[in-house]
């Protein structure tokens, strides 16, 4: 375990709790209350996905102090970004939750950092979070692209067979298998 991850490891659970709280605060208060309270993962998928994703991110952050890579972090961040990508947020709002991790870290670790002069570690940690921000941006764009692709596909599946039958499009492939 290297420096900044050890800093994180001290108070991982507190940071997780704070991060979750800060993120839910980006929703309407009556919604946030509900999402915090209902614990059933099927009745309350939003909170479940957020919790799972956040726990995953923090676990990986503790494991290594390397610069985060998409290969490791994408599955965890995807849990959160995929939901926020369709939730009526602007792109900035949708991915801003990752910077709330910074705030959660400062809120939770500041005492230790300032008393023991562990600023380098905090900066290092924050730089890693910045990289996470970039990964989130990629995921967000992928989700939105998928959304638009879905809309195009929808139109295609609605009309393609009609066009084919009407003889308006020609088909060179011998009955391509569907998937």
């Amino acid at each position: 375990m290297t420096v900044s991850s050890s800093l994180l490891a001290q108070k991982k659970d507190d940071i997780l709790a704070r991060w979750f709280e800060l993120t839910l605060a980006t929703y309407a208060p009556e919604t946030a209350v509900l999402w915090k309270k209902q614990k059933d993962r099927f009745a309350n998928p939003v909170a479940y996905r957020f919790k799972t994703g956040m726990t995953g991110v923090l676990d990986e952050m503790v494991k290594s102090s390397e610069t985060p890579t998409a290969a490791v972090f994408e599955p965890h961040l995807d849990e959160i970004v995929r939901v926020r990508a369709v939730q009526d947020f602007t792109p900035a709002q949708a991915v801003a939750f990752i910077y709330l991790l910074k705030q959660a870290c400062r809120d939770t670790l500041w005492k230790d950092v300032s008393e023991n002069g562990r600023f380098t570690e905090l900066f290092e940690l924050e730089s890693r979070i910045d990289v996470l921000g970039l990964i989130c941006l990629d995921i967000y764009c992928k989700c939105r692209e998928k959304l638009f692709q879905i809309r195009i596909d929808q139109i295609n599946t609605q009309y393609s067979r009609l066009l084919k039958r009407a003889g308006l499009v020609c088909d060179f492939a011998p009955e391509a298998p569907e998937s």
Binding site: K37, Q38, D40
Partner: peptide
Amino acid sequence: TSVQLQQDGPKVGYNS
């Protein structure tokens, strides 16, 4: 009162 499945195995949660 639905079955409360959670990440870390089944356990009873608060159900308003």
